[in-house]
Simulated assay, not measured.
Amino acid sequence: MRARPSSNYGPDTEPGSTGRTFLIGGQLLNAPKPAPGLYLVATPIGNLGDITLRALETLAGVDIIACEDTRVTRRLTERYAISAELKPYHEHNAVMARPKILERLAQSASIALVSDAGTPLISDPGFKLVREVSAAGFPVIAVPGASSVLTALSVAALPTDRFFFEGFLPAKEVSRRARLAELARIDATLVMFESGNRVQETLKDLAAVMAGRDAAICRELTKLHEDVRRAPIAELAKTADTLETRGEFVLVMGPPPKDAEVMTQHDLDDLLRSSLVRDSVKDSVAHAVELSGRPRREVYARALELAKELRGGDGEA
C-alpha cells in the first residue's frame, strides 16, 4: 500500500474499492456500507476476541477508520481481514484532521473513530470531533463494546451502585495528593487509570489519603497476564514495591466506610493552629487538606484567618 500523508482524509481511493468484508472463523462475510456519519466504535482492551459482531461489520463497511495509532488498529483489522483504510486521528494532528473528516462527511462518507483500546473518548481523543460533527448536523452513532472502566468495576468486588471515573491522576506528588483529597469526599466507588511507572507511588498516596478503604488493583485486564488484587488499600500499599509494573492499570477504590469520622470545623481549626505554629501557611494548608478532605480554597481562607490571630500579621508565609 502506498504511503499517504497522515492528515489526508481526501477521497484518494475510489468509492467501493475496499473489500467491505470481514473474516470470522475462516468464513468471509459481507459488510454493507453504513449510512453516512461518524461511528464511535469500541474495540477490545486486550483480547482481540472481545470485538462485537456489529463493530466488525461497521469497521469493514466504512470508508475510513480514524484511529490513534494505525499500527495498533492494524493488528485488529488484520486479525479479521478488514481492508478499510486507516487514517490517524490523535491529539497531535487533530486540528488538521477534523476539518478533513467534516469535509468527507459532507461528501456522504461513513467514518469510524476508534481508540487504541476500549471505548472512544474515554480518556482518549475525540470529544472535539464529536462536538463539531454533531454541530454540523451529521449523525454520530455509538457502537458500544469493551471498556476498561466497566471491566475493572465488574471484577473489583466493590460496590457498583454509584461510581466516579477520574481518569489519570496528576503526575506530580503534590498535585496528585491534593486531587486525591478532593476525591476522598465523594461517597462512591472511585475508578482511575495509572501508568506502570507511577502506580507504586500512587498506591502509597491513596493509602495516606484514603486509609480504611477497600481497593482493587487491576492489571492487564483481558490479557494473558491479567492480575486483580483485592485488599484494603493499606495492605496493597505495603506490597506496592513488589508489584509488577509492566502493563496497564486500573485502580478501584471503594466508598468511604459508613462509620468514617468527619473532621469538624473545631477539629480543623485545632489542626491548623498546631501546624501554623511550626510550618508555613502553604505547608499547613496542604497537610490539613490531605487529612480533612476539604477543598483547598476553604482551608486556605481559614488558615489565613487563624494565622493573623496567632501572628498578628497578614498571615502570609
Rank of each mutant, 00 (worst) to 15 (best):
R98T: 12
L268I: 05
L206N: 00
L183G: 01
R75I: 10
D241L: 06
P36Q: 14
R185L: 14
V174N: 15
P232N: 04
H92P: 00
V133H: 07
I45P: 00
A55H: 05
P125Q: 13
L291H: 13
D227Y: 07
A112F: 01
V191W: 07
V285D: 07
Q265T: 15
V209F: 04
S280K: 03
P5W: 03
V155Y: 08
E103Q: 12
R229A: 13
R230C: 07
V130H: 08
Q107V: 01
S284N: 07
P36H: 14
V262E: 14
T119S: 05
R71K: 11
V62Q: 03
A307D: 06
L271S: 13
A136T: 06
E261R: 12
I82V: 14
A208C: 12
L304K: 04
R294V: 05
S284R: 02
A84H: 01
A66F: 02
G313N: 13
N93C: 00
T151Y: 12
A152V: 11
A156I: 08
D269A: 09
G118E: 08
D161Y: 10
H90S: 01
M192I: 00
L180E: 09
H266K: 14
K204D: 02
L23R: 13
I141A: 01
R179G: 05
M1A: 15
G145I: 09
P34F: 06
R311F: 15
G16E: 05
A240N: 01
S115G: 01
L28Q: 14
A81K: 11
G61D: 04
A106Y: 00
S17R: 12
D214W: 08
V143P: 07
R54P: 08
D279W: 03
M263A: 06
L243M: 11
E309S: 11
A184Y: 04
F249S: 01
E85N: 10
A240S: 10
D12T: 14
R294S: 06
T70A: 04
L23H: 09
R278I: 07
A106T: 02
R131W: 02
P99W: 00
K258W: 05
I24Y: 00
G49M: 00
R75D: 10
A184G: 13
F165E: 07
G145L: 12
M253S: 04
S284V: 08
A135H: 05
